[in-house]
Nucleic acid binder design. Structure first.
Lengths: 127, 127
DNA sequence: TTACCTGCAAAGTCTTTGCACTCTT
DNA sequence: AAGAGTGCAAAGACTTTGCAGGTAA
């Protein structure tokens, strides 16, 4: 299961790295297809999953919507507008030891966490 | 838009309330269809959404999977096993004022949050 | 050469929705 | 009677996957 270098894979990686924000698989596809019209959605999905498996990018599965992919920066949290469903980064310290607050681990091994705030974004609020 | 009392709606509410855990729409459907074989999935979804809109039950959208519905108890967090994808309750104090830690609210109105821990559950760990 | 990768299309999962009929109020 | 709710089936959003041909190493 050695990884190979392919045009498609590097285009996917590049798209996620260059857009310095979280993008959906569909956004990645739409960006790449402009330069490389033959790429398929399946390939984009396969590469996004592969790249996040090997730690090149980060997959953030969002509740009730498409997963997002981050250019592997620091850990951070997200907020989702309950009206327009857009997802935003949240300016908040990452709580590295949050798992330590769990009282009864029931024999589970905790390996991380996500926090998703619910919000009404500025645009939706001013309407 | 007055709400009416229907057999189907009360069966959905009952199913969520009686199973004292988070259930998916599909589980609710499977339970109800045994007693009331004519109910449709569409009706289950419509009622789950309606009941959570009016606050009778709680909808918890899970990343990368089906939404879960809770019998409106206290706030609590969830953990999802990265291997088997099962979802568990987490024994941890709810952080009511977590939103206050956000440094720059950017004009957003924050109305709550979810935390989803990633874990390897006991069963998957012992395999 | 080999085994990983791709494009394509089909299928899978979860959910919503249009339509015509039914039932609560 | 009015209009909210229902069953059904189709469709929609998002993602995975089987297959046959292509390609990096």
């Amino acid at each position: 299961m050695n990884k190979r270098f392919t045009i498609q894979r590097s285009l996917v990686l590049e798209a996620v790295k260059e857009l310095r924000r979280h993008v959906s698989a569909d956004e990645v596809y739409e960006i790449i297809v402009k330069k490389h019209p033959d790429i398929s959605r399946g390939t984009v999905y396969r590469n996004l999953n592969l790249l996040s498996d090997i730690g090149e990018i980060r997959k953030v599965e969002m509740p009730g919507g498409a997963a997002l992919y981050d250019h592997m920066c620091r850990d951070h949290y997200h907020a989702k507008c309950v009206k327009c469903n857009q997802v935003f980064d949240v300016a908040m310290e990452f709580i590295g030891d949050l798992e330590n607050n769990i009282k009864d681990t029931q024999g589970f091994i905790f390996t991380g966490h996500d926090i998703i705030f619910k919000c009404v974004c500025r645009d939706c609020n001013s309407k």
